[in-house]
């Protein structure tokens, strides 16, 4: 058994409470890592992320790219023999990193999430065209993928006007109450 010191223990405990997931049952069998389709884009493999949290290594785990590259496809946790909800742990780690104001290594992914939520806040539903345009502006990457964007427009895959909900107050409440 590894005894953690105060800070490390406190961090591990906090993530456990936030996510509601007991990651200490992890056997380090790497089933999650073997199944992960996005492993190549990650600095730490999913099992290593779990290990870092178990050991309470706050800085390493909050600064890693893996927690942002993970899309939460649930492949890992459906393979996990201990049924650990790894994407839920990743969620809690992202929230903590944002709260602490840590420099996010995958700023493009964060920009994308922010733009998605901006359209949800405005219309109650996502508006793909606006998300893409604002995302492109924000990341100052206007030219790459133009071909794909134009093809999508041509095939009417991107509605020009947003689909909106009527009860705007409800959405305001959701974004205010948080």
């Amino acid at each position: 058994m590894i005894n953690l010191d105060g800070d490390h223990q406190a961090f591990a405990e906090e993530i456990k409470v936030r996510s509601g997931i007991n990651f200490n049952t992890c056997l380090q069998c790497r089933s999650c890592t073997n199944g992960c389709p996005f492993l190549e884009g990650m600095d730490y493999a999913p099992n290593a992320v779990i290990r870092l949290v178990q050991l309470g290594l706050e800085d390493q785990v909050l600064q890693c790219s893996a927690i942002w590259v993970c899309v939460g496809c649930n492949t890992c946790c459906s393979f996990c023999p201990m049924a650990i909800d790894i994407p839920a742990v990743m969620d809690s780690l992202r929230h903590k990193a944002l709260e602490k104001g840590i420099k996010i290594p995958e700023s493009d992914i964060l920009s994308f999430h922010t733009e998605v939520l901006n359209t949800v806040k405005k219309y109650g539903r996502t508006h793909k065209l606006e998300i893409m345009m604002r995302y492109k502006l924000k990341t100052m990457d206007l030219l790459s993928d133009m071909g794909v964007g134009l093809k999508m427009l041509k095939k009417r895959k991107l509605d020009l006007t947003p689909s909106k909900i009527q009860d705007k107050k409800a959405i305001e409440k959701i974004f205010r109450e948080k």
């Binding site: 939460g72 929230h95 949800v120 959701i174």
Partner: peptide
Amino acid sequence: EDWNCCGSSSAHSVDHAVAKMLSMR
């Protein structure tokens, strides 16, 4: 009637409270 976005991947990734309430509504 008047359904809203489920929050998609983005809400639960960066804003737990919003994700929760979008689904609740």
